[in-house]
């Protein structure tokens, strides 16, 4: 295997590891905000690494650019989704405190 193939393999394996951690965080963490942390950070790091590995394997500048667009959109979408869900949970949580 060439150096880029080894590098791609390394990136994909590392990325898969982050996905595992994300799932574990989602299942183990005690409250919804901590779970949000696990999802947004671990999964997007995982996706970034897998995307970098796949871009190396495609050996095409256009595909690499396309994968970069996918990655950036995924980052923005996931971060905004995380913010919206957190804000929603916060608003509902405060409502619950007001009415014991």
């Amino acid at each position: 295997m060439s150096i880029s193939a080894w590098l791609a393999a390394l990136l994909i394996v590392a990325g898969t590891g982050f996905f595992f951690a994300g799932t574990m965080g989602l299942l183990r963490f005690p409250d919804v905000f901590s779970r949000l942390h696990a999802l947004t950070k671990a999964d997007n790091t995982g996706l970034g690494l897998v995307a970098a590995g796949v871009a190396l394997l495609h050996q095409s500048w256009r595909h690499a650019a396309l994968i970069t667009v996918i990655w950036l959109l995924a980052l923005a979408a996931s971060s905004i989704a995380c913010h919206l869900v957190a804000r929603d949970a916060l608003a509902r949580g405060e409502q619950r405190e007001e009415k014991p």
Partner: peptide, 19 residues
């Protein structure tokens, strides 16, 4: 963001879950 991923992975996989 990579540090963030490592940080949260460590917290998620650590047996005691340092949160």
């Amino acid at each position: 963001s990579v540090v963030g991923g490592i940080d949260i992975s460590w917290r998620a996989l650590h047996p005691a879950m340092p949160l």
